[in-house]
């Protein structure tokens, strides 16, 4: 089940959230562990984490009274599918258009 692409894009649009994702790419972290390097308040970090969680970019698990966050394994698949399709599709399309134009010019 993928999050809507819009939610993914708006979650990624914020530099702090991108930085949080970069930190989580290096491994799991709790809210408190994220507060320190980012020098912003815990409520602010928590708000960013909620946006990322809603977009399906991170997962949180319960470990006693800790709730560590990690990157969702297939978070960017939908975005990836679209983007990869776009570039590859574009190359294939124009090669096909070349052939179509050549065929029409021979008429």
């Amino acid at each position: 089940m993928h999050a809507p692409l819009d939610a993914v894009c708006s979650a990624l649009a914020d530099p702090t959230r991108r930085a949080i994702l970069a930190r989580l790419a290096a491994g799991e972290a709790t809210v408190n562990e994220l507060v320190e390097p980012f020098e912003i308040s815990q409520p602010a970090i928590s708000r960013h984490l909620r946006v990322l969680e809603h977009a399906g970019l991170i997962l949180r698990r319960v470990d006693g009274n800790r709730r560590p966050c990690r990157l969702a394994p297939d978070a960017l698949h939908e975005l990836d599918d679209y983007l990869s399709m776009l570039k590859k599709g574009m190359e294939a399309n124009y090669a096909r258009l070349d052939r179509l134009l050549a065929k029409r010019s021979r008429r």
Partner: peptide
């Protein structure tokens, strides 16, 4: 994200892309 399209598909590529392209 759109510019990250040249790379190969798959999990590993996703994370490489996440680090190299999407993230500042």
């Amino acid at each position: 994200a759109m510019l990250a399209t040249g790379m190969e598909h798959g999990m590993e590529a996703s994370y490489v892309r996440l680090e190299a392209q999407v993230l500042p």
